[in-house]
């Protein structure tokens, strides 16, 4: 098998009045965890649905595991696992019954279901929960059961749409350990998320906004090369007065409280930093320190989007 597990080329989906996805291209290697990151309505789910062959692209093409998304959707669906945002577990059924049901749906041979169930539930840490009803599982365990159900037929590719919304950090970490184990054994994974710290776990990721990919690369690349502007951490007092001054002075695009410091973001922080000490001192604010710090992925994302919005809305 080729090491390329997924390729999307210029995928586009238009509905009556709007374009949900436009010219989206990316690829996923075998054993890679690839993240699609973006706000609600950016086109993440539409992209996944096209790749699963559930929605026909208006233009562009793609393959998953070597199969064409338009001509061979059944081949794809047989070989992939999909945990959608609204993955429906049956709350009244037990863990084991839910698994058996999905194994049946995915066409796992009846005689192998029980062995698969043992293996998969052990993998996701639910081996001792077989008789528990899905409704009584905590949020994190329910997510792992959904993942187990999607893994029933040993798919080579796993699609996860917002897998950890509302799951606490410890459970999220457990889920990611699982995803790493799957990837290490050769499963390719495409995950959509709007948790920024989760996006950092992906090998590579793409920011999708208004249907287009606006940045792509590793999280490190994004932070080091693709940030528009800088983040400055200001240690000063009184904090509230400093914040008010910053928000009125427009030296930065944004100024926000972070614990006992202020984070200010602007396209040219160095220039702003020249003016800042005088401005604060005039109004009785003591500035202890001001240093440029590494941006978070969310900082990169937000500034990137601001930049995109400006280039869209400003006259040509």
């Amino acid at each position: 098998m080729s090491p390329l597990s997924l390729s999307a080329e210029q995928l586009t989906k238009r509905f009556d009045h709007f374009t949900a996805v436009e010219g989206v291209s990316f690829s996923v290697q075998r054993g890679e965890i690839y993240g699609l990151l973006g706000p609600n309505g950016a086109g993440k789910t539409t992209t996944i649905r096209m790749l699963l062959g559930l929605l026909r692209p208006t233009a562009g093409q793609g393959t998953v595991l070597g199969y064409d998304i338009v001509r061979q959707p059944e081949e794809i669906r047989r070989r992939v696992g999909y945990v959608s945002q609204k993955f429906s577990l049956y709350p009244d059924l037990t863990v084991a019954e839910n698994f058996n049901f999905y194994a049946g749906v995915y066409g796992v041979a009846r005689r192998s279901i029980s062995a698969r169930r043992g293996d998969t539930l052990a993998l996701v840490g639910l081996a001792d929960q077989e008789p528990v009803r899905a409704a009584s599982l905590p949020g994190g365990a329910r997510q792992r059961l959904a993942l187990a159900c999607a893994l029933a037929h040993q798919p080579d590719f796993l699609f996860l749409d917002e897998p950890t919304a509302g799951v606490d950090p410890i459970s999220r970490r457990a889920l990611w350990d699982l995803l790493y184990a799957l990837a290490a054994s050769g499963t390719s994974i495409l995950v959509t998320t709007h948790y920024m710290d989760e996006a950092e776990n992906c090998y590579r990721l793409a920011f999708i906004y208004q249907g287009r990919i606006v940045a792509e690369g590793t999280a490190r690349d994004m932070k080091e090369q693709q940030m528009q502007g800088q983040v400055v951490e200001l240690d000063c007092e009184p904090l509230d007065r400093a914040l008010t001054i910053l928000r009125q002075a427009h030296l930065f695009d944004e100024a926000a409280l972070y614990g006992s410091t202020i984070h200010a973001i602007g396209p040219d922080a160095q220039a702003a930093l020249v003016q800042l000490p005088g401005l604060l001192a005039d109004q009785g604010v003591t500035l202890h320190s001001a240093e440029v710090i590494a941006p978070s992925l969310e900082d990169v994302f937000i500034t990137r989007l601001r930049h995109v919005d400006q280039s869209v809305h400003s006259p040509a």
């Binding site: 973006g38 609600n40 709007h194 948790y195 509230d240 944004e254 969310e298 994302f301």
Partner: peptide
């Protein structure tokens, strides 16, 4: 989503600057 989240926090900052005390629970540690 992240864009709306930033905006929401921007509003909270304003509320905070008006002197209102805020207690918030969140699963997002950032």
């Amino acid at each position: 989503d992240p864009v709306s989240r930033r905006e929401f926090w921007d509003l909270l900052t304003q509320v905070h600057l008006d002197g209102v005390t805020i207690v918030i629970t969140t699963p997002y540690l950032d």
